[in-house]
């Protein structure tokens, strides 16, 4: 072709993980919650991302088959939501709030500090695969800005000076409350 174009005619060459049988079973477990199979898509994508760390091409294709929709339907939905990653991300995602309250309370300094400590930019992953960084709009904890969320755990009133300490803490993404495993991926590979 005379011009450079993204190729959609050929299947992607990069490898990406398949859905394991237990994961599929877990997804099927959601079928009776909704009148359509398609409605299980977003819960399924959560489980897939939990299990694989991201939602790759193969997973999209397989979940499409499972839910009897087209892979492009899945691609469409996955790409709409900021929560889903279509390429591998780190074990932990650091989500820095950038909306108004946090911003006025110094969110940009917190973000800069995260970038410095981790040595990565927005939507990038550390070479050791431990952390990815992203910004998000208001995390609904504006009374405690600036906020950082690490996987499930919210860090409130973050002082840039404490960022390093927070990021060095192994348990910085752990919730210490009774929890439900309903949405978790089947065989969580990530810690």
């Amino acid at each position: 072709m005379a011009w450079k174009a993204i190729d959609r005619v050929n299947a992607p060459t990069e490898e990406s993980p398949s859905l394991s049988e237990p994961l599929k079973e877990k997804i099927r477990g959601f079928f009776d919650r909704y009148p359509t199979k398609r409605a299980v898509l977003i819960p399924a994508l959560h489980m897939i991302q939990d299990d694989h760390g991201y939602v790759g091409w193969k997973a999209m294709e397989e979940v499409a088959e499972l839910l009897e929709i087209t892979p492009s339907d899945v691609f469409d939905t996955v790409s709409f939501y900021s929560h889903f990653w279509t390429h591998p991300k780190g074990e932990k995602v650091v989500m820095a709030c950038r909306s108004i309250s946090c911003d006025l309370l110094g969110a940009d300094r917190v973000l800069d500090e995260c970038k410095k400590v981790l040595g990565i930019g927005d939507h990038e992953t550390t070479p050791d695969g431990k952390y990815s960084l992203m910004t998000e709009e208001c995390l609904a904890a504006c009374d405690h800005g600036p906020c950082l969320m690490i996987n499930e755990k919210m860090h409130k009133c973050v002082d840039p000076a404490n960022v390093r300490k927070i990021l060095e803490d192994d348990a910085n993404d752990k919730l210490d409350i009774p929890r439900s495993n309903l949405y978790d991926g089947a065989n969580r590979t990530s810690a």
């Binding site: 898509l41 977003i42 959560h46 929560h83």
Partner: peptide, 29 residues
């Protein structure tokens, strides 16, 4: 009455009631 929790995936517009419904149906909001 059955009650299920449906988790969104990061899109403000899914708070709009029909965006929410589309999202609930597994589509873009």
């Amino acid at each position: 009455l059955e009650c299920y929790i449906h988790r969104g995936a990061g899109a403000y517009v899914c708070g709009e009631e029909t965006g929410l419904i589309e999202s609930l149906e597994g589509k873009r909001g």
